[in-house]
Amino acid sequence: MNITLEIWRQKDAKSKGKFVIYKLNDVSEEMSFLEMLDFLNNTLISKGESPVAFDHDCREGICGSCGLYINGWAHGPAHLTTTCELRMTKFKDGDKITIEPWRSKAFPVIKDLIVDRSVFDKIMQAGGFISANSGAAPEANSIPIPKDNADAAFDAAVCIGCGACVAACKNSSAMLFVSAKISQFALLPQGKTEAKERARKMVAKMDEVGFGNCTNTGSCETRCPKGLKLTHIAKMNREFITAKIVAEKST
């Protein structure tokens, strides 16, 4: 099939950037979306032009590197799919495909379609862990965890940190990402000890780095490639409210 691509090109963080149109012929239906971009880059290089830079690594939807805003959708039009898992079968001959980087004040563009998501690490550093030193752990089976809780914690833990929630949110809010970690640990007895403190610190960091506020619109939930749910945000809110109101003043 033949397609037209409209791609955001930006040389580096300081440059202004603009959309550039590329016509791409002989695209195979069997290509994945990123293989289509590889194919585009090949043709660009052979013409002496600069290839389009985009983040990608595992190409099987688990590392969270890739993330493109395709035709107005974070990760493209398919559901529960990362950009690398998206197939060209979702498009047809003659389509025009607009590709933009994630847009958020907290995710500045580095080059073309690559953005800097290091603020996610910063939020994790603020409290996204259980403070268990190596060697201090008790026998793994000494704390039974109800299967439902363990499963729920797993459902929260599948977040790949891709940032699609931020990209899709009209407010560029990172609450789904943050709440997934808070929720996962709050559901496990190991993580309960620090749950309140964790919620307080991670939320404070999230606010500090420039994400917007949640308005419970739910776009994040519909675009999350791993199917994380708004219930995690509610759980985070609960943890946060108890941390701020119910818990004793922290020193």
Binding site: Y69, R103, S104, S172, F211, G212
Partner: peptide, 10 residues
Amino acid sequence: NWGARPKRYK
């Protein structure tokens, strides 16, 4: 919220 996305999507 508006400030969190200075550059809008096309």
